[in-house]
Each structure stands twice: as structure tokens, then as C-alpha cells.
Design a protein around this nucleic acid. Structure first.
Length: 463
RNA sequence: GGGCCCUUCGUCUAUCGGUUAGGACACCAGAUUUUCAUUCUGGGAAGAGGAGUUCGACUCUCCUAGGGCCUACCA
């Protein structure tokens, strides 16, 4: 085994947002590097100038940053290294590991169809031919071996074998002289000293061809680990209709980054019975070798459960800021009175919340202004008898400290005093306090409202 | 068409030839509770199918079925 310090990298192509599967790949790369005391790098694969956009680069950086996946060095932009790539191809040409292919688009298409019909890999007739005009338009293709086989010792899949005859002569340099992905990855990974390539399952086939390129250069082939993709709840490829694909969408849905990290790490990887674990634990336990071979499905219910756990632990001021953001995104603002002691309210309301959006929703009954309009169900609860009882309750409560415990006790004491169970007026109390919106238990609701507002709401309804 | 990969409860997973196949989420039931929620207790739930290797297979091999990825001058 190589004694070199571990270097991993995440290499997204900036053609869109940061996909949740990509985010997990990035996370695994970082965890593995940290676990081994190595280095985690980021490289933007923007060799496709047509499809790469600056907006996508920004979205990816933002997504990674939000998730807390931070590279140990400045990101490398692949397109900036095109000269180096071209130079590398020239050496391949000189050593006979590449050739100039003058096939036209039409000829290539015909050749491709023929190959497919015969059930074999496509090969260019220019493999062993030289054009009399070397300046005629052409691409440069890799000249792979026609015999033998290439074996990948994949860290998660195990040994994978390919017959070289099945591997086609991929394009290294396009007609316009631009390097292609398969060439650029190899050169860059080598130049960056990458020791472990951890990437999506969809690259296994490339692994064989890239191995051949490494060998043509005479370079050491890095260890590889191909991790399965994340599918939607129904097992199909994750798409729009499953709710979300981009990490930014998860952020907007009120998920906490630490919850996301925990959930994503646990998806396709496990450490015994551990379900909830810290970043430090993840780093000390994680090894790509323990990643599961089969694709995993995104389970919203479990994500919600994990998120609820982290919300319970989260700092209230921080949650308050997130909730403000959620509300602002809806184009709404919090009343000053509520905003001022938001963190205190959140401590009262975050129990059971599965996302910060839930917290925002639970704020609804607090935000309402007097006099509340009660829904039909609440109105129905207000009989003559109950009104009278509630107004006696208001008096009773006037002298009580507005904190959960004393209020809880006071309500019970009042019930005893009235000679009835709390059930006799509890629902009605809730009704006049919330108007029908979801609200927490009575003592908590009362505390959240504060003495003046709470008493005011009761009096409004009974007078 | 060709190449490669995958297959344990509904879902995420444990098991590294010998287990009553374990845990978590979800679900169901009961308890608590002023509703919902929370909390607590209990419950149902799995080795795709078929051969083989072996004293013994979820675990190893092969076949079948199902699913996925690749098959670009995209990455």
C-alpha cells in the first residue's frame, strides 16, 4: 500500500445546482480524508465550456458551505489547466498511446451504429493510419490495448474486471483542441496528488478507461471507491417530483445542516446501531470500505426525525434567525412584540418541530391580534356555563406568575376549586387562546402569550 | 444490442458459515395528557427465485428474475 498521506477530492461539474447525491459524495470524501488525517480538495470540472456556468459554480460552493463541507485548499478550476492537459496528450501521442482520428461526424455515427449492431465497442479506422494532411480537422483518441483485461480493486464494490476489447478509444482532445473529461480527471488527479478517488457509481465504467490512461502515462493508479447513487422514495432516480434534489432546497425546507450531515452519512453507511452521531464521531468511525454497495432511497420521515432531534439541541437564538429567514422568504414579517422575544418563544415551541418551518407555523397563534376570530369549533365550545367559568379562570390567573409550572399548577387548582376536571374547560380555553390554530399545551400557550395578551384573549371571548 | 454493478422488515441498516436474523425511522395497539404533538410500554414486519459447495448457508459459487449505471468531440 502506498505510504503517501491520503488526498481525496470532490469534483463536481458546474452545470446545475448541487445535487443531494453529490453532496453526500463530497461529505464522504471529506470524512475519509479527515479520518485518515489527510487532505480534502475541491476541483470544479468545467471543461465543458458550453454547459458550465458561473451561477452553477456559485450554487455548488454555497451548497457545500451550507452543508459544512470545507476543502482544505483553494478550489482548482479544471478549465484553467487546459494547457497542461494538451501537453499531456502530446506526450501520449509521442509514446504511441494516442492517435489522430479524422473521422467525420457522419462517419463516426455510421461506425457507432455498426459497432452497436455487432455488439462490440466502437473503434476508429484511424487507429493505425496517418492522414496525409496532419492539419486536417481531427480529434485525438486514446489508443487502448486490444487484449488483456483491466481490473479495478474498488474499495466498496470489490474487484471489477473489464476486458480491454470492450473499452473504446475515447476522445482525449476535441477538434477545437479542448481536453475532455476522462483525460482531464486523470491528469488533474495525478497532479493534485489524489490518492483516493471517491465518486458516484455512475463512474465505474470510466474507472477502467482512466486506469488505462494512468498506465499509459506510467503513473500510479489511485485507489478508487464508487458509491451508490441516492434514489427517490420509490426507488427511481431522484427527480423533481420527489420533492427536492438540490441541497439549497433542503435548506429552504427548514432542515439544519448538521441534521443533513448526520442523515446523509447514515444513508448508505453505518456504524453498528448508531443513528445519531456527532461530526467528530463520524470522522473517527468513517471508512469508505464500510459504505454499502446498493443504492439507498431518500426517506423523508427519517430525515424529519433526525432534524427534529437536532432542532431540540439547537441554540434558540440561531433558530430564531432561521425562523425569521423562513418567514421573510414567504414575504412576511413578525410583529415587533413577537420578534423581540422570539428566542424565548422558540424554547417554548420547538418541542416536536420537525423543521424550522414547523416552528414558524407554530408561531401562528401567537401572531394573531385581538380580538381573535374564533373558528366554528371553538365557538361551539363556549356555552353559557363555560364562559362564566373562563371569566372566573381569568381572575384566578391574574395573580399567577406566567411561567409554565405555576400556570400548570394554577389550572389544576382552579379545576379543583370548581369541582370539575380540566377537561371541562380545557378545550374551550385553548380555543379562545388560539382561535383554532394549532397550539401547544395550555400552560405553554399561556406562557408564550404572556399575561396581558392571554388574559385579554380570554376576556374578549367571554364578554 | 454490448459492458459493468446491485438485491435482508415499507425505508435505512447489523450480521463478516452456526443468531429466537439485531437496531432505527415509519406503522399499529395501549398508557399518560386539556386537542394535536411529545413521552412511555408493547406489537406486527425481511434474507427475490432456483440449483450447488458444506455437517451447517442471509453469508461462498452458478443460473434466472427484477432494478440501476455506462455505451458522447457531457461530466
Amino acid at each position: 500500500m502506498s505510504p503517501r498521506p491520503v488526498v481525496t477530492r470532490f469534483a463536481p461539474s458546474p452545470t446545475g445546482f448541487l445535487h443531494i447525491g453529490g453532496a453526500r459524495t463530497a461529505l464522504f470524501n471529506m470524512l475519509y480524508a479527515r479520518h485518515k488525517g489527510g487532505t480534502f480538495l475541491l476541483r470544479v470540472e468545467d471543461t465543458d465550456r458550453e454547459r458550465s456556468t458561473e451561477a452553477a459554480v456559485a450554487a455548488i460552493f454555497e451548497g457545500l458551505n451550507w452543508l459544512g463541507v470545507k476543502p482544505d485548499a483553494e478550489p482548482v478550476f479544471q478549465a484553467a489547466r487546459a494547457d497542461r492537459h494538451r501537453q499531456a496528450v502530446m506526450t501520449l501521442l509521442e509514446t504511441g498511446h494516442a492517435y489522430r482520428c479524422h473521422l467525420t461526424v457522419e462517419e463516426l455515427e455510421a461506425e457507432r451504429e455498426r459497432a452497436r449492431a455487432e455488439g462490440r465497442a466502437i473503434r476508429s479506422p484511424w487507429r493505425d493510419r496517418v492522414h496525409n494532411d496532419p492539419d486536417a480537422p481531427h480529434v485525438i483518441r486514446f489508443k487502448g490495448p486490444l487484449e488483456g483485461e483491466t481490473v479495478i480493486d474498488d474499495l466498496v464494490k470489490g474487484q471489477i474486471r473489464f476486458r480491454n476489447i470492450d473499452l473504446d478509444d475515447l476522445v482525449l482532445l476535441r477538434t477545437d483542441g479542448a481536453p475532455t473529461y476522462n483525460l482531464a480527471v486523470v491528469v488533474d488527479d495525478h497532479d493534485m496528488g489524489v490518492t483516493h478517488i471517491i465518486r458516484g457509481d455512475d463512474h465505474v465504467n470510466n474507472a477502467a478507461r482512466q486506469t488505462l490512461i494512468y498506465q499509459a502515462f506510467g503513473w500510479e493508479v489511485p485507489a478508487m471507491a464508487h458509491i451508490p447513487l441516492i434514489h427517490g422514495p420509490d426507488g427511481a432516480k431522484l427527480s423533481k417530483r420527489h420533492g427536492a434534489q438540490a441541497v439549497g432546497e433542503f435548506a429552504d425546507m427548514g432542515y439544519l445542516p448538521e441534521a443533513m450531515r448526520n442523515y446523509l452519512t447514515r444513508l448508505g453507511w453505518g456504524h453498528g446501531d448508531s443513528e445519531i452521531f456527532s461530526d467528530a464521531e463520524a470522522v473517527s468511525w468513517f471508512d469508505v470500505r464500510d459504505v454499502v454497495k446498493s443504492p439507498a432511497r431518500l426517506d423523508w420521515a427519517k430525515l424529519a426525525f433526525v432534524n427534529a432531534h437536532y432542532i431540540k439541541d439547537a441554540d434558540n437564538e440561531r433558530l430564531a434567525d432561521l425562523v425569521r429567514g423562513d418567514i421573510a422568504r414567504r414575504g412576511e414579517t413578525l410583529p415587533d412584540g413577537v420578534d423581540r422575544h422570539l428566542a424565548t418563544l422558540i424554547e417554548l415551541l420547538k418541542e416536536g418541530a420537525k423543521s424550522t418551518l414547523d416552528i414558524a407555523a407554530s408561531l401562528e397563534f401567537v401572531i394573531k391580534t385581538r380580538p381573535l376570530s374564533l373558528d366554528e369549533k371553538c365557538k361551539g365550545l363556549l356555552t353559557e356555563e363555560t364562559r362564566a367559568r373562563l371569566s372566573r379562570l381569568a381572575e384566578h390567573l391574574a395573580a399567577v406568575e406566567f411561567q409554565r409550572e405555576p400556570l400548570e399548577a394554577a389550572i389544576r387548582a382552579f379545576a379543583g376549586q370548581e369541582g370539575v376536571g380540566v377537561g371541562k374547560f380545557g378545550a374551550a380555553l385553548r380555543g379562545v387562546l388560539s382561535g383554532g390554530s394549532p397550539a401547544p399545551d395550555l400552560a405553554t400557550a399561556l406562557t408564550a402569550l404572556g399575561r396581558d395578551e392571554a388574559l385579554g384573549r380570554i376576556l374578549d371571548a367571554v364578554s
